[in-house]
Write a protein that binds this DNA or RNA. Structure first.
Lengths: 199, 199
DNA sequence: GAATATAAGATACGGCCGTATCTAAAACAA
DNA sequence: TTGTTTTAGATACGGCCGTATCTTATATTC
């Protein structure tokens, strides 16, 4: 009764590892997921994993890309900047439902430690970051005359993304009320698209 | 020639450890600073360190508090909200000169992983976070009639802090131009204290 | 000054990381 | 088929974490 010694290779092996990674992520969460644990559960070794992904963050992002069921953001076009912003935030909220908050936080922490991971997160999920979604929204709004122009400094175009990340990190959720507040009290005033009623 | 076996205790020992920690921080940086390294350099053991501080982040923050030469922020009161904001940002820039950006980033990453460290960073440096500085500034501005009122939602009061942290993380510095942009293009519009010239 | 309490120091552990080295299987080439 | 290249698998390492255990020096108390 010699054991079968058949070896997976290439895509099949990669697929199996990502599958296991995704499972571990669901059951243990990001922090408690270990490379050794994945290797063991996938009946392979760390060596094999490290040959394909440089670290946990990349592995997890790959697994999310494969099994997360997230297709990226689309540019909202509701006809109003305000509702465009709200629609964007709803998309992000949906994204966070798929990628647990704890995972998001872990990835972010890792990204901070390895600066080379810079933007990997946003790129992985949206091609070019939320900013790539926001800019077209601003273009539309400017074309409609809702805002004075469409070429704002990077810091402003990135502001929605910053607010969202901060919200998730500090409050561990992205409530509807928070989204309204960010849009109405911060974003619209910044882009000069509001006549907020004084308190 | 038996070695002298005198043992440091209490404050003296604590002081020596913090001293070494601060040195290591300067020479190796946050990431490459290790508990074992500090223990060795301080001629003691990890056990002793862990009895006083739960992890690297706390140890480093303690060392910074002791040797960092930073006294906390003060509420600017220049007579104008705009210049108050700029003065605050100058203080933060000065803070970052003392605490290397790399250290800041490392601490932040650790904080993300251990949620219990929440706010430890800001508390350590300013009693209650930048928000505790911003609120009085808003009070003053409201009293002067520069802004309509002073009780803004937390999200707005925290906005300066968020912008600053983001700036440091993504650009590794806090340039003067950035500070002007954040104040003039974001903060003042948000608090309704500007009549920004349309582009 | 002797007994007791407190805290430092030494040591060893299991866990995980990331790497290096060696082997053996699978795919490919001739 | 056989030889060659590729890549998986096994193993071992040094580094660091955080904890537990035990010994021993220093303070404290009587």
């Amino acid at each position: 009764m010699a054991e079968k010694k058949t070896r997976r290779r290439g895509e099949a092996l990669k697929e199996a590892i990502l599958r296991v990674t995704w499972d571990e992520l669901q059951t243990k969460g990001y922090q408690r997921l270990t490379m050794e644990g994945v290797a063991a559960a996938a009946a392979t070794t760390k060596t094999v994993i490290y040959r394909r992904w440089p670290d946990k963050a990349h592995l997890v992002i790959a697994a999310f890309g494969r099994f997360g069921g997230f297709d990226g953001y689309v540019v909202p076009d509701t006809g109003k900047l305000r509702t465009d912003f709200l629609a964007l935030m709803a998309q992000v909220a949906a994204f966070l439902d798929k990628l647990a908050e704890e995972t998001f936080r872990g990835l972010l922490a890792d990204r901070l430690q390895h600066l080379d991971l810079e933007n990997l997160l946003t790129r992985a999920s949206s091609g070019n970051g939320i900013q790539a979604i926001v800019q077209p929204m601003l273009d539309h709004a400017a074309a409609r005359g809702e805002i004075a122009h469409a070429d704002w400094p990077d810091r402003l175009v990135n502001l929605p993304g910053i607010l969202l990340i901060n919200e998730v990190i500090t409050r561990q959720e992205l409530s509807l009320a928070a989204r309204y507040e960010m849009v109405d009290e911060i974003l619209l005033p910044v882009f000069g698209a509001t006549a907020r009623a004084p308190k």
